[in-house]
Design a binder for these strands. Structure first.
Lengths: 131, 131
DNA sequence: ATATACCTTGGAGTTAACTCCAAGTCAATA
DNA sequence: TATTGACTTGGAGTTAACTCCAAGGTATAT
């Protein structure tokens, strides 16, 4: 698979994909004789993983560390597990924050829907913040 | 309430709080005769809102726009509602991504837990990716 | 074979959101 | 009242994660 196809598949730019490879967010990708990237299934799995992790804010630094450990072989299995658990804790923390923000936005929007109908913006006694 | 107290309450730095005020993420904060910030309940509500929204990745630019509209008065109520709905859609999209990443991490970690016990890292037929 | 489009690399530039700094002012305490 | 610590401003610097660029190689269509 060419870089163009992979980029389209995951909706990222070629620059981003080359950058990921350059810094080690994904292992080195296989090439044609001419030196042009030709992604294997394996390569694509790594890309998919990177895109997913990045979309949840897992730092590039952490993905690099994971790939490095992976390439060192089975002796790093516990280290990799620990890294994944750290990442998970971080993602969960953010998930909770995002949920809290959704709750706040839903409340505010419900007040605004009301205001658009009645022409008056009101808040519960608890929330005398008027914003 | 002093800037120090507000920062402690929301676990942010004074620089960040002054920056928020400077660029308009929150409205101008009230001052003592000496010109020192003295946050009112209202001011603090704005800070709380900003911190919450930022923690879910709502861009500074969007918060600035909201404050601007708010200060223009009731004629901007529908515009503010629309802005909030845009923000909500964005937060929801990210929430979904975070959840997808949690699922992936949970699966990987379960495989690693197994590997730590048995010494062998295995994957389902579907997931022959070995990472 | 030659033009066209796409690919390569290394390195420089950009963006958002802080974060730090210098020079000076304010306030609480000995 | 003098000193100490916290506060003020405007502006410069930093960081993470891309994003762009130039010079050149590769591959496909005429």
């Amino acid at each position: 698979m060419t870089i163009k196809e992979v980029c389209k598949k995951y909706d990222i730019t070629q620059d981003t994909l080359r950058y990921y490879e350059r810094v080690g967010v994904i292992p080195e990708v296989s090439r044609t004789k001419g030196g042009i990237r030709d992604y294997t299934e394996q390569d694509i799995k790594w890309v998919e993983n990177a895109v997913c992790m990045r979309s949840a804010g897992v730092p590039v630094e952490m993905l690099i560390e994971y790939v490095k450990l992976f390439q060192e072989g089975d002796s790093t299995i516990t280290a990799r597990r620990d890294l994944l658990m750290d990442a998970r804790a971080e993602v969960q923390k953010n998930l909770d924050k995002y949920q809290a923000t959704m709750d706040r936005l839903n409340y505010k929007i419900s007040r605004y829907e009301e205001a658009v109908k009645t022409g008056v913006l009101t808040w519960d006694a608890e929330n005398i913040k008027k914003d």
